[in-house]
Each structure stands twice: as C-alpha cells, then as structure tokens.
Amino acid sequence: MSNPVSALQGAAYDGYVKVEELGLRGMITVRGNLASTKLKNAVKAATGAAMPKQRQISIADEGAVAWMSPDELLLLVSYDKVNEVIAAFEEAMAGQHFLAVNVSDARAMFRLSGDKVREVIAKISPVDMAQDEFNTGDFRRTRMAQIPAAFWMADEQTVEIICFRSVADYAYGLLKDAAEPGGEIGIFG
C-alpha cells in the first residue's frame, strides 16, 4: 500500500499571518439536484452538516459541506473515511441522478491565521473582504492571482483555502509573498 502524502507535506511559513499547508483532507465532489430531500439527507449523513445556502459553507464536527454552484457541492470529510462515505452516499442516493467523486488527491488545502488574514486574501483575490461583505460561513470560489481557488473564514482570524494540487506550490509561494512581514496594509482595521 502506498503512503499518501499531501502536496507540500505540511509546509508552514510565519509571516505577519501564518501560512500552513494543511495536509490530507477527504474531499468529495457531489453533483445533483440540491433541492432534493434525498440528497440533503445523504449529505447530512455523510458529513453531519446541513445543506448550505447559496455561497455558504456549513461546518459540523466531523465534516463540512460547501456550496460550489447551483448543482454542485464539495463535501469535506476525514481523508481515511472518504471511500466509506462515498459508498454510504451512493447507497442512500440509489435510483437518483447524481455524481459523487473522490477528489481528495487532486486538491491542496491551506490555512491562514492571524489578525490580518482579510488583507492577505484581498491582496491576491478580486473579492471584497470587508467585514460587512465577507464573514464566517461565507464560501467564495474565485481566483488567487492566476489560479482558481476557494476559501472561507473558519473564524475572524482564520481563512481556509482550497486549490488544485497541481498548483499547490504556486499557491503557497503566493500566500507567503502576500504574508511577508513589512507588507502590512492595515486596511481592515
């Protein structure tokens, strides 16, 4: 059995906010009719989290569900449980038109933590990071400089980011650069 490793194997950088690569996380792309009760129940059973509203993420103890588009969700679960979660999900959704795919090894995850996480994101993404525009529970798919990325705020001092594994090194370099001491702006107070 091969030994799975994450893209940057937990690399971390202490800038004026801390940048960490988060290691392996189970991720499942789900496509289907998000209004269907069966899908809602299957998602709840898989992650413990309720169906998120548009552009939101709903987070529970053992997992999370992010709203990706009107017909797509991303389920976050622990890495070693992915296969059994998918098996249970497929059983719960039998007879329905849906898709559930393990994308865990195709993604990388980062965490920013510190007082000024908002401005680090604002430097590299075309997103309004003001407190009254983006908050805990919001989920945003956008770009970070030249690559697609998605992020949400776990709390006021923490941003978690998902990007494609193939560009993990680029994302890490970008985040390190944006978080470099001396680069503080102080725009969000």
Partner: peptide
C-alpha cells in the same frame, strides 16, 4: 445569475 456573485471581469 447562478451564484449571485458580483465580481469584476477577471473572474
């Protein structure tokens, strides 16, 4: 019109 995001051109 699908995700309700108001964003600039580069997205």
């Amino acid at each position: 019109p699908y995700c309700g995001v108001t964003a600039e051109e580069t997205e």
